[in-house]
Design a protein around this nucleic acid. Structure first.
Length: 458
RNA sequence: GUCCCGUUCGUCUAGUCAGGUCUAGGACACAGGGUUUUCAUCCCUGCAACAGGGGUUCGAAUCCCCUACGGGACGCCA
């Protein structure tokens, strides 16, 4: 069997759409799974959309996801160049072939592909005009997901614009032939185009590749495929919010594919182990950000400690927190690991460890500080902590135990919520005692006093 | 409008190709309860689907047909 060659053929637009990302992922998975070659080909035949910045977004997006390509921009390869804007000579050669076999003609300065079959004139309600149609033989092809599909083209179509630029259908097929592509894995929006492409493959005397049409990703709300605009539809929206690439890969893979067992949280390696074309879904899928968040949290929990540290430190630094005391910062992060749900939440979760001007959760204030006994509790906690001998977790525990005993309580838990709120401005967080130990006596006592003063004023 | 593809809980999906083991399984979300100093975790419980109709069959989520609905394509965009 010949080696699998697949391609991801994006058009640079300046954004990296999640639908594209999933198509890239499936191509990559299939290539890696089969020991095949993953080709990256840039379909920049529309000069208006084609900028260096747009290309950079694309390449960075793929790198962020960890989808390395074997042939393409930067890596090169035997079938280059990998930019369609630089392949004019190739298209010229194939065009000549079509011309020589009588399958092209010129009209209005453009080059058209000639279908074979009886011609007739008909009013086309879609184009709102009388057009020439052709009774062409239906093209029959096998789609790996949907089985046999049959569709007949009925209109000649443009191959080269009057400006001289070749159009998508031509370059796409020519490059798939010239680059030896064996499997065309792409979105279902191309299923209807496939008949057109089959016409070209046949007219050029090339064998058909195996087609694999992926279900569409639909908008979470409202009709239609995931829109090109709007929030949360581009890869950058998620990288910016510090989602883990492995989580996005996992989630995207599950959108239109499943491993047939109940596995859900999978590393890229695990995904690779499980991936196969059979598991691809026929029906369209809707993007659910809540589920993504869940997958992301699970990936965060599974992150090795050191990687969690590195990513967290960089997120905190990006949020303007001073993490230069690495021993301290790491100690803070150790307290939060397995607690915080996303890296995006992390800065707000730990600001009070790094600064005295931290945000205060007003809802928590209303709930905790409105109570009659909050001021006495605060004062008692302050008094107790002031007399703690050794400012360690054990010392603090002993101090609180004494406090409880003097109020004939078994446990000091009654003082915990107000204390936590007073020193952090939050209702939740890491375990209280280690948190106070790390915060140190100075900040803890200062904040408790400050909270007491604020409380007296009310 | 024409053609192509699809349709199982609110969402992602298992089960469909090889009809019975499906009183339809899992996950997210949601609701309730338990554990927990808080938060998170964890545990338990609940909610909730075979689009509709007709056929084939002893038996249909599964096979066939029709309808409805959804998506896509029909461009000198990709």
């Amino acid at each position: 069997m010949t080696q699998v060659r697949v391609r991801f053929a994006p058009s640079p637009t300046g954004r990296f759409h999640l639908g594209s990302a999933r198509t890239a992922l499936f191509n990559w998975l299939f290539a890696r799974k089969t020991g095949g070659v993953f080709v990256l080909r840039i379909e920049d035949t529309d000069p208006r959309r084609n900028t260096p910045e747009a290309l950079r977004v694309l390449l960075n997006g793929l790198r962020w996801l960890g989808l390395n390509w074997d042939e393409g921009p930067e890596t090169g390869g035997a079938c280059g160049p990998y930019f369609q804007s630089r392949r004019q000579a190739v298209y010229g050669r194939y065009l000549r072939k079509l011309h020589d076999s009588g399958r092209t003609y010129r009209k209005d300065g453009a080059v058209y592909f000639r279908l074979e079959g009886e011609r007739y004139l008909e009013y086309d309600p879609y184009l709102k005009a009388e057009v020439e149609k052709v009774r062409a033989a239906p093209q029959v092809f096998v789609d790996a997901v949907r089985g046999q599909v049959r569709r007949a083209e009925e209109k000649d179509f443009v191959l080269v614009r009057s400006s001289g630029e070749p159009v998508f259908h031509l370059v796409n097929v020519v490059d798939d032939i010239a680059m030896g592509i064996t499997h065309v894995i792409r979105g279902e929006d191309h299923l209807s185009n496939t008949a057109k492409h089959c016409e070209l493959f046949k007219a050029l005397g090339a064998p058909l590749p195996q087609f694999v049409h992926l279900p569409m990703i639909l908008n979470n709300k409202g009709p239609g495929k995931m829109s090109k605009r709007g929030d949360g539809v581009h890869l950058e929206d998620y990288s910016r919010r510090h989602f883990l690439p492995s989580a996005l890969v996992n989630f995207l893979a599950l959108l239109g594919w499943n491993p047939k067992d109940d596995s859900e949280i999978m590393s890229p390696d695990r995904l690779l182990e499980k991936f196969d074309l059979d598991g691809i879904q026929k029906g369209n899928a809707r993007f659910d950000e809540k589920k993504l968040a869940h997958v992301n949290t699970e990936h965060l929990r599974r992150l090795p400690r050191e990687e969690f540290m590195q990513r967290s430190l960089s997120v905190l630094q990006g949020a303007g927190l001073d993490v230069s005391d690495l021993t301290y910062s790491r100690a803070v992060l150790d307290l939060c690991r397995d607690k915080v749900r996303s890296l995006d939440d992390l800065p707000a979760y730990v600001t009070y460890f790094f600064s005295d001007s931290y945000p205060v959760d007003e809802k928590a204030r209303r709930r905790l500080m409105k109570r009659e006994d909050s001021l006495p509790k605060l004062q008692q906690a302050l008094a107790c902590l002031q007399s703690v001998g050794e400012w360690t977790e054990a010392g603090l525990e002993e101090g609180f135990a004494n406090l409880a005993r003097s109020h004939r309580q078994k446990k000091p838990f009654a003082w915990f919520p107000v204390t936590r709120f007073a020193v952090s401005g939050r209702a939740g967080g890491p375990d209280l005692l280690p948190m106070l130990a790390l915060l140190g006596p100075h900040r803890t006592l200062t904040r408790l006093r400050r909270a007491g003063r604020a409380q007296r004023k009310e």
